[in-house]
Amino acid sequence: MIAALHAEWVKATTLRSTWLCLAGFAVAVAGISAAVVGAIGDLQAAEPGYDAGLLAFYGLNFGQVAVIVLAVLLTAGEYGRRTVHDSLVAVPRRGVFLASKVAVGAALVLATAAVTALVTVVVTQALLGPAGVTLSELARPTVAAALYPTLLAVVCMGVAMMMRDQTIALGLVIPFFFLVSPLLELVPVLQRVAVWLPDRAGQVALRLHARPIDAFGPVTGLAVLTLWAAVAVLGAWWALRRRDA
């Protein structure tokens, strides 16, 4: 398992696309959050429904796309690039292969997202000045801003591994999490179901205050997202074991 982890680490870190995705994530999250807060932060802060957590991590809506792309490249990308046979010949135990891949992908995203979350919260609250809240108040949303992209990446790694096609996986997962899922939450009859979707559930933990439509709190939200991640990885494991490579 240590050898397989080492191999996945070398594989991930020797590709330029990995670093581009991680850098893209950091720049999008911190940059867009800072830009939005800088431009309309004080106006937003005066609104009645203002949520300091949601505003501070506004850039996450866009940054998550980079994490999704990375997750798909690390998994379905192996099929598109025809490297998967080499990978499975080197590490024939499917469970070890998948666990190593997911662990390395998650570790890379977690490290990047943790640093990004800290930078983002410090910068946005500094920009807000007197309208800002204390950093200790935002501690929980900041932790969530590190965990949410990590768990979302695990969901996408599992899903893309099952699909085995990079283009289809990207074409399905990006629009779903970027567009479809947020919109479903706006449709009154669907929102009771939509709040349980992986990204909606995880984002509950980013907010400082509960909304009327929320069915659960921040910890449960992250737990629901974790459950989705577990199901996706188990599905990928089942598919890997069952199918020919």
Partner: peptide, 10 residues
């Protein structure tokens, strides 16, 4: 293997 290839970006 005929069906395998090294990643072009590595």
């Amino acid at each position: 293997l005929d069906s395998s290839a090294p990643h072009p970006g590595r």
